[in-house]
């Protein structure tokens, strides 16, 4: 059911959730901009932004679950992630995007775009990762 799916996603994607940026500023989740993530990563001691380009989106035999294949970072490492179709990724210059923006809006009231092949999502890696 949709309730079960909603409960498996963390609460901070719900519209109105308060998010603290690295400089201490508070913003609502729906108001976050690309710059907020970039500036927060800039002053973070241990995190840095990595770009993850969507290469493929596939449905699975499990309803409500998709596999998103990303090309990550300058080394273009291939990473496949199994996600709920309502899971929102943050796309550079666009904002929250999911495989099913209708479901994301329905469950979280979060304004959301359709995640598409070629979208560049914000992801994080650890600084000084050897």
């Amino acid at each position: 059911s949709s309730m079960a799916a909603a409960q498996t996603l963390p609460p901070y994607f719900t519209k109105g959730s308060i998010i603290q940026l690295a400089n201490g500023d508070l913003k609502k989740v729906e108001d976050l901009k690309t710059e907020d993530f970039i500036q927060s990563a800039d002053i973070s001691n241990d995190l840095k932004i990595d770009s993850s380009t969507v290469e493929r989106i596939e449905s699975t035999h499990s309803p409500g679950i998709a596999v998103v294949q990303f090309s990550v970072g300058e080394h273009r490492a291939q990473v496949s992630v199994e996600v709920l179709i309502e899971y929102p990724f943050f796309v550079f210059g666009q904002g929250w995007s999911s495989c099913s923006p209708e479901r994301t809006s329905q469950l979280f009231d979060l304004p959301c775009c359709k995640l598409s092949v070629g979208d560049v999502c914000i992801s994080l890696t650890l600084k000084n990762l050897k």
Partner: peptide
């Protein structure tokens, strides 16, 4: 009277998936 309510505040990095694949040597 307005009762003070605690409001959850989430750190910005919670919202970004960590994707840290093994880097080539």
């Amino acid at each position: 009277n307005v009762e003070p309510r605690s409001v959850a505040v989430f750190p910005w990095h919670s919202l970004v998936p960590f994707l840290a694949p093994s880097q080539p040597d």
